[in-house]
């Protein structure tokens, strides 16, 4: 069966919540309502004509307006495949601490267990009904979700420094404490809530609202590391812009050289 037939069959079985087939992508995909996801998955797995035995990837993408979760299914019996997508629109005025919620399909496909944990860990998508909703890659006391566009980089993880210019831990003076990440107090949960505050602006993220002072005339040098404890906005997009400008300058110089060489 090709994707079109699979889609029409799926739509017959669960008419509510199954959207149109998008064939513009390399892997044609169907957008499914979050409420109908588990039903659609059960149908695709159990229907003998579909027989999707394998869920080989669960992944998420953050876009401007939404976070999309994609499920890549395939069948060994019939050698066909289909991609399902759940779109979680970003609510009006949502900040980086917003985390969407999708029903877990780990009860349908056990392989989804670790994939969903990974998406929770790196993008902060919560999977309702997941049997073990913990982080999978990062330490359990990690704060934030690193693949979000507005992620702010930590300076340390617990006792471990993560900055290039950090003092080695065996050279720290006596009684040293990280000013930003105090040790976890006894009794606090290991799993941080998804809306835990983060510490440092991520240079690759979306630019913050401009400062009242003239930010545009900042020198092209590398921005100095911020003094610790200052939670304010630092020039976020600057690293990327800087690099882009440099690349453009190099390209222009090369083109000029080539032109001169030709002439």
């Amino acid at each position: 069966m090709n994707e079109t037939k699979l889609h029409s069959r799926l739509r017959e079985a669960c008419p509510s919540g199954v959207g149109d087939l998008d064939t513009s992508a390399k892997d044609p995909f169907v957008v499914v309502e979050a409420a109908a996801l588990v039903e659609a998955m059960v149908f695709l797995r159990d229907d003998p004509a579909c027989a999707m035995e394998m869920l080989h990837l669960v992944t998420a993408t953050e876009r401007e307006a939404a976070i999309e979760v994609a499920y890549h299914l395939c069948s060994y019996t019939h050698h066909h495949s289909l991609t399902l997508k759940v779109v979680c629109p970003r609510p009006e005025g949502a900040d980086q601490e917003w985390s969407p919620s999708v029903p877990s399909v780990a009860s349908v496909y056990p392989s989804a267990d670790w994939h969903e944990r990974e998406q929770y860990d790196l993008l902060g998508v919560r999977f309702d009904g997941h049997p073990d909703p913990r982080r999978i890659l990062l330490p359990e006391e990690w704060i934030g979700h690193p693949l979000r566009k507005q992620y702010v980089y930590p300076t340390s993880s617990g006792d471990i420094p993560l900055e290039l210019d950090a003092t080695p831990i065996y050279e720290r003076p006596e009684g040293w404490t990280d000013p930003e990440h105090a040790p976890r107090a006894a009794g606090t949960p290991l799993v941080q809530p998804p809306n835990a505050p983060s510490a440092r602006p991520h240079a690759g993220g979306k630019a913050p609202p401009p400062k009242p002072k003239g930010e545009g005339d900042e020198p092209a040098t590398k921005p100095k590391p911020k003094p610790k404890g200052d939670g304010g906005a630092a020039p976020k997009g600057e690293g990327g812009d800087d690099m882009a400008a440099k690349i453009a300058a190099i390209k222009a110089a090369k083109a000029k050289k080539k032109k001169e060489g030709d002439g």
Partner: peptide, 20 residues
């Protein structure tokens, strides 16, 4: 830190930060 020196959010930038 190697290739992760700039964008490695969870990479320790050299093991000499941890042990001599």
């Amino acid at each position: 830190g190697g290739p992760y020196v700039k964008w490695g959010y969870n990479t320790v930038k050299g093991v000499h930060k941890i042990i001599p």
